[in-house]
Simulated scan of single mutants.
Amino acid sequence: MSDKPMRKGITTGTCAAAAAKAAIMARLGQPVTVVEVLSPQGIALKVPIAECHASTDGGFGWVIKDAGDDPDITNGIKIGAKVMVTSQPAIVIKAGEGVGTVTKPGLAVPVGEPAINPGPRTMITKAVEDCLPPGKGAIVTIIVPNGEKLAAKTLNPILGIVGGLSIIGTTGIVEPMSEEAFKNSLVPQISVVHALGYDEIVFAPGKIGQDIAVNRYGLPAAAVVQTSNFIGHMLENAVKYGMRRVLLFGHLGKIVKVSAGIFHTHNRMADARLETLAAYMALSGAPQAAIKEILSSTTTEAAMPIITRYNMNEVYNLLAERASARAIRYVFGELVVGTVIVTLKGDILGLDQTAREIGGHLGWNVPIES
């Protein structure tokens, strides 16, 4: 078994931003083979340019997506940008061939907009602004040849994204997801927390949850680690490293799976989010009409307004209690577990009493009534 570190890649958002910047540079008579773009966190990323050339009113740029050692369906595809320079100092981003459009609510982008997430939009805008002449703006059209065909192999059709792929990425970097190596790369986080003297740890499935836990609620950064999809694996290792208590802190879409006893949360492994939500809604006395609406939703974000409309928000606390109970059962009672469920924006939807105790002991700033 090789100990060689797994190679990181770049997101579709990084590719789109780099292609847009290369297009502007070509328009200015400065064709490039490499550009530097900034991630939403301000990290400089160097991206090879496969091709760029000027046009009468702008330019074209192309990047070959490199997913590193991640088994990504988009690895090796071409992502391009057609940029038209305008006299209005604004950046307008459009979906071209192979880029999807959002048709259903509950996603990070409003209905009717190109399926280009906020992180990539920030990167594209910054990359173009950095090299535009003063007082000029641009219309940026992102293109993914064969994107519509590839999208059929993703969750986009279920999510209501039509016409192509989504341009995504919250950090601009693809972390390799090959199972065993990636799982093993996560475990040292627990070792570090233990070495710092903690016997309590906060598990967040992703970076967004990690940032919310630390920056909004004041949980100690040293005790908050990412689990990715491997919540069960990380719980087992929390036991091995002598942790006493775990606070699960994440978005409804991940935590609701744990409530159903699903501890590998990738959608290709198991996905009963809406079914689980509907079951606990029914247990809490929701009418059949509410259950039908939940099951007709595309995402848990889209289900939230339905839950509010039927005055069923207490179901989130029940789901948090259930997630904690399933996690405790998963490790045969060798951990105390509390759970917090949040929205993508970081608002707390539900939590259990154990979460209050762990969070309070770790010094969070959650009001008593939350």
Rank of each mutant, 00 (worst) to 15 (best):
T276D: 08
T265A: 13
D130A: 15
T122K: 14
G253H: 12
E369L: 09
S370W: 09
L107C: 08
V256H: 07
E113Y: 11
P48W: 00
K292A: 12
K257R: 11
C131G: 07
V258M: 05
A44I: 10
R356I: 09
E275S: 13
H361L: 09
Q288T: 15
I368C: 09
T227P: 08
I168H: 03
M304Y: 14
A320H: 06
P40Q: 06
S39N: 10
L219F: 03
I201N: 09
V225M: 02
L274T: 04
T12A: 02
E334D: 10
W364L: 00
G261E: 05
R356Q: 09
I208T: 13
N117T: 04
S370E: 09
I124T: 05
G13K: 08
Q189M: 12
I168Y: 13
E275Q: 14
I348L: 02
R27N: 13
I64C: 05
R27E: 10
G261V: 00
G137T: 00
P133T: 11
L274V: 12
A279S: 14
I201A: 10
G250H: 02
G163F: 01
K82E: 14
A222H: 10
I161K: 08
I49R: 01
Y310M: 03
I212E: 02
G232I: 02
I348K: 00
Y217K: 04
G42V: 04
K65V: 01
T141F: 04
H194M: 13
A152P: 00
G359A: 07
A204N: 02
G119M: 07
V63T: 01
T298G: 11
K292W: 06
G232S: 05
Q353E: 15
M281S: 15
